[in-house]
């Protein structure tokens, strides 16, 4: 093997591992963690803490995502949506993926514990709920596994706030509840859109267990409750009246789409709610950050 091809091989391997971290999803979760930290109105411009928070959270989230991909490689290979993943295509060595996932996880969670014990515990809880409870234990057994996936996704924002405050408060729990309730909008829409894929892979989903109508109702309800939780958290943070108005407007958009999804469901409305919910969550996080700045 020439030096050039070695470098290219290394580059493509790094690229493959990078894709296993699901950069967009990890980035959004990281953003929630940073917003949670800033919501505590602590000295947020402490660069060292911000960098360490970002790094520890990113490693913990990326590590758990890599381990999920490793565990699910057999079912990913059966689903059109996921069969191009490096794990499903066998582009990387399985044992190596496991080692990399474990090492990245240990670095992330360990770093979090080194920063603060309670922060570390919450980051570890997020990792544990995601990898062990959601992926390994429940994903192939029950469609309710997404609740645990959601709890895991809610941990970064709670962890961030706890790092800023030093304790768990109701605002942190509301922020976490907002993220937890937002996640079904995402995952249930996916499970509706790729219903056949999940059926082929034998993964139980809400649509396959309870039907499309119940799933749509669950999405609409969780969107509305997510917005309500975010508004409650924003009031608890003491958000500026103007930003509250803006959050109210964005929430009204979410309510309208949720209503359309319930009473006049179409593929387009379904997709619209799915995308809008992501924009909503990102905007809510930006407002929390702007509030502090």
């Amino acid at each position: 093997m020439t030096a050039q091809s070695k470098i290219e091989n290394r580059k493509s391997k790094i690229g493959a591992y990078w894709s296993l971290t699901k950069p967009s999803q990890s980035g959004l979760l990281l953003a929630t963690g940073l917003a949670g930290y800033m919501s505590a109105r602590c000295p947020v411009f402490n660069i060292s803490t911000i960098l360490q928070l970002s790094a520890s959270l990113f490693f913990a989230i990326a590590g758990s995502t890599i381990l999920n991909m490793w565990w699910d490689r057999d079912i990913d290979a059966k689903m059109g949506r996921t069969q191009k993943r490096a794990t499903a295509k066998g582009l990387l060595n399985d044992k190596e993926i496991l080692i990399v996932g474990a090492v990245v996880s240990i670095v992330g969670v360990g770093w979090a514990f080194a920063m603060d014990a309670l922060y570390g515990l919450i980051v570890f809880a997020g990792w544990f709920f995601d990898v062990i409870v959601y992926s390994v234990w429940l994903k192939r057994r029950t469609c309710w596994s997404i609740v645990w996936g959601g709890i895991s996704g809610a941990m970064p924002i709670l962890a961030g706030r706890v790092l800023g405050l030093g304790f768990i408060d109701w605002v942190g729990l509301m922020l976490a509840l907002g993220v937890l309730l937002w996640i079904p909008t995402h995952t249930l829409t996916f499970s509706m859109k790729f219903q056949k894929d999940y059926a082929d892979a034998g993964v139980p989903t809400f649509p396959s267990t309870y039907g499309l109508d119940v799933t749509r109702l669950a999405i609409a309800l969780s969107s509305v409750l997510a917005a309500a939780a975010m508004i409650a958290a924003a009031i608890g943070i003491g958000m500026d009246w103007g930003f509250l108005r803006l959050l109210g407007v964005l929430s009204a958009g979410l309510f309208a789409l949720a209503a359309a999804m319930t009473f006049k469901p179409t593929e387009r409305v379904n997709f619209g709610l799915f995308k809008y919910a992501s924009v909503y969550m990102l905007a809510a996080m930006i407002l929390v950050v702007l509030e502090v700045i």
Binding site: R245, G248, V249, L250, A252, G253, A256, R268, F271, G272, K275, Y276, V279
Partner: peptide
């Protein structure tokens, strides 16, 4: 004004997401 500009805001976002078919 919150209602008026709110509708403008959400409408722009929905056209951004769903396209002109919205």
């Amino acid at each position: 004004y919150t209602v008026a500009f709110g509708v403008l805001l959400v409408a722009a976002l929905l056209i951004f997401i769903l396209g002109f078919d919205a």
